[in-house]
Amino acid sequence: MPTERFYNLPAGKKKTIRDAAVEEFIRVPFEKASINKIIQAAGISRGSFYTYFVDKRDVLGYIFEDATENFQNSWVNCAEKNKGDLWKTAETFLQYSMANAKENVLRLIKNIADSEKLFGMTHQLCKENTRGQQELQEVMYRSIDTSDFKDKSIETFGKLVSMIFLELAHCMGWYYHHQEDEEKIKKIFQEKLEILQYGIRKQTLQS
């Protein structure tokens, strides 16, 4: 994640850097995104960039972090509408995302979802486990009714939600290309949620 020096920058400067990075990640897939183009658009030196971030993955982490409040509020609203049902909340969240997605947001999601390093990148972001990520996970966890979960730990909840959101990212990536497939995308997402919820075996594994 960004360094303390970055967080100490004026709000306007941070926004300029963020916007420059978003534009670059929209322009091309993540692997092809150019740090040079980001620093040129942001009007900062290469040296300054590396006092703020380790690499472009760090920048992407900040973009995710910056969007956390809106994401968090949207998730909680969906959970409240569905009385804490995780699976209905996920379906409602997908519908909300489709209904409110702007063209640039869809392109950004598409470019990240298409990334060959998506799994590793997501794993690393989760591995760092920043305070902001912990707080988001706790808010999401508290909004869900876990009374019928076999394992009620927040750690298992985090793993489950990461699988759900990987599928959601794929759905939004497809939606970017084929908005006419909206109902088909929702149906496939629902089917995948059912597999996560109920599994595929006819009986439980024998110990």
Results as ranks from 00 to 15, higher is better:
Asp145Phe: 08
Phe71Val: 03
Asn111Arg: 12
Ser34Thr: 05
Phe93Pro: 08
Lys110Ile: 01
Arg46Phe: 03
Gln95Ala: 09
Ile144Met: 04
Lys127Cys: 02
Phe64Leu: 10
Lys110Asp: 10
Arg46Glu: 03
Tyr62Lys: 07
Ala99Tyr: 12
Gly120Met: 14
Phe64Asn: 08
Tyr52Trp: 09
Asn111Lys: 13
Lys88Leu: 04
Leu125Thr: 00
Phe71Asn: 07
Phe30Gln: 14
Glu138Gln: 15
Thr51Ser: 05
Thr68Val: 06
Arg107Phe: 00
Gln72Tyr: 03
Tyr62Pro: 14
Ile35Trp: 13
Ile44Lys: 12
Glu155Ile: 00
Arg107Val: 03
Glu65Arg: 04
Ile39Phe: 06
Asp66Cys: 10
Asp55Val: 03
Leu86His: 10
Phe64Ile: 01
Lys83Asp: 12
Ser34Asn: 11
Lys37Pro: 04
Trp87Gly: 05
Asn82Asp: 09
Ile154Met: 01
Ala33Ile: 07
Ala67Pro: 00
His123Met: 06
Gly47Asp: 04
Phe93Ala: 11
Ala67Thr: 01
Gln40Arg: 13
Ser115Tyr: 11
Phe119Cys: 11
Asn100Ser: 14
Phe157Tyr: 10
Arg46Ala: 12
Lys83Cys: 02
Gln137Leu: 14
Phe149Gln: 14
Val28Trp: 05
Ser74Gly: 11
Arg107Glu: 05
Asn100Lys: 14
Glu91Tyr: 01
Tyr96Lys: 15
Trp75Thr: 04
Phe25Glu: 08
Asn82Glu: 14
Phe64Thr: 03
